[in-house]
Simulated scan of single mutants.
Amino acid sequence: MSDDAPGHAMDTGSWPSIGRLALPLVGRLVEDAHMLRLEVSRSPAGATIVDAGIAVSGCLEAGRRIAEICLGGVGTVSIAGGDMETAPFEVCVRSPSPVLACLASQYAGWSLEHGKGDDAYFAMASGPGRARAAKEEIFSEIGYRDAAGTACFVLETDRPPPVGLIEQVARDCGLPASALTFVLTPTSSLAGTVQIVSRVLEVALHKCHVLGFPLEHVVDGMGRAPLPPPSPHFVTAMGRTNDAVLFGGEVQLFVSGPEAEAERLAASLPSSASSDYGRPFAEIFEEVEADFYKIDPMLFSPARVLVTALQTGRTFAQGGRSPVLLARSFGFPQ
Rank of each mutant, 00 (worst) to 15 (best):
S189P: 09
E136P: 08
S57Y: 01
R240W: 04
L306M: 11
S256Q: 11
Y277N: 07
D3T: 15
G115I: 11
R314G: 10
L29F: 05
P6W: 01
A290G: 01
M238R: 12
A309I: 04
T312V: 11
S275V: 12
A101D: 08
R159F: 05
V30E: 08
G13T: 07
T48D: 09
A148H: 07
D4M: 05
F300N: 07
C59S: 15
P229T: 09
I295V: 15
D32C: 13
M35N: 12
M35H: 14
D3Y: 12
L100V: 09
R314I: 06
G27E: 15
L310V: 06
P128H: 06
P186Y: 05
A120D: 00
G221L: 03
G331L: 03
M298E: 12
A33Q: 03
G319L: 03
T157I: 07
H8F: 13
L23Y: 11
S274Q: 05
G164L: 06
L155W: 03
R20F: 06
A191Y: 06
Q311S: 15
G249S: 10
D118Y: 14
P280R: 13
P161I: 05
L326N: 09
M124A: 14
H233C: 11
T157M: 04
V56E: 07
A67R: 01
E287Q: 13
R145F: 10
V50M: 05
L299E: 05
S198T: 06
G257F: 01
P96R: 12
L36V: 03
T308S: 14
F234P: 04
R279E: 11
L299S: 10
F122H: 15
V194I: 15
V324T: 14
T185M: 08
D11M: 13
A120Q: 13
D51C: 07
V235H: 13
F234Q: 09
L38N: 04
R224P: 04
R321L: 02
D83A: 15
V50I: 12
F300Q: 04
S105L: 03
S322F: 02
D276Q: 04
L253Y: 08
Q195Y: 07
A170M: 02
I69V: 13
P214Q: 10
C59I: 00
S329L: 07
P176F: 04
R94F: 13
S272D: 00
Y107F: 15
S198V: 05
D51V: 04
G164E: 00
R199I: 11
F300C: 11
T193F: 07
V245W: 01
I54A: 10
V99G: 10
S41V: 09
I49G: 08
T181I: 03
F330V: 04
G58M: 01
Y121M: 08
A191I: 05
A52W: 02
G143V: 07
